[in-house]
């Protein structure tokens, strides 16, 4: 999948990746790639500024801790981040339902 198509959804993808977990940067990148079956083709370096942006918005918090003998910054969702993730999921369901209704010709996805 092309980076430009992903950029607008990166925040939501990161929030979803951190749902119920506390992960460091590279673990987030790995989880994103595994979750997409390797289809996410985004420069991994863009994840760090995005995490800072989410932290600025109060949607994630970070702490420095030692993981695997190395000092790392780990991220987790805040309550506001959890609410933002729920809103993103609702918006995505609504979006895909509408688009599927048109592109899919009102097929099976539109009925769910």
């Amino acid at each position: 999948m092309k980076p430009d198509a992903l950029r607008g959804h990166l925040d939501a993808l990161l929030l979803a990746t951190l749902d119920g977990k506390q992960l460091h940067g590279y673990a987030i990148i790995e989880a994103l790639q595994q979750g997409s079956g390797g289809a996410l083709d985004l420069p991994t370096g863009t994840v760090y500024p995005a995490l800072r942006r989410l932290e600025r918005a109060g949607h994630v918090s970070s702490d420095w801790s030692t993981v695997g003998g190395r000092k790392r910054r780990t991220y987790k969702l805040t309550q506001a981040g959890q609410r933002a993730l729920n809103a993103e999921r609702d918006a995505w369901r609504e979006f895909t339902t509408v688009i599927d209704g048109v592109l899919g010709g009102g097929g099976k996805w539109a009925q769910t």
Partner: peptide, 14 residues
């Protein structure tokens, strides 16, 4: 410094 530390860690992991 913190951004560069994270970057180096990420590159080492990769």
């Amino acid at each position: 410094r913190e951004l560069l530390t994270e970057t180096r860690d990420s590159l080492a992991d990769a």
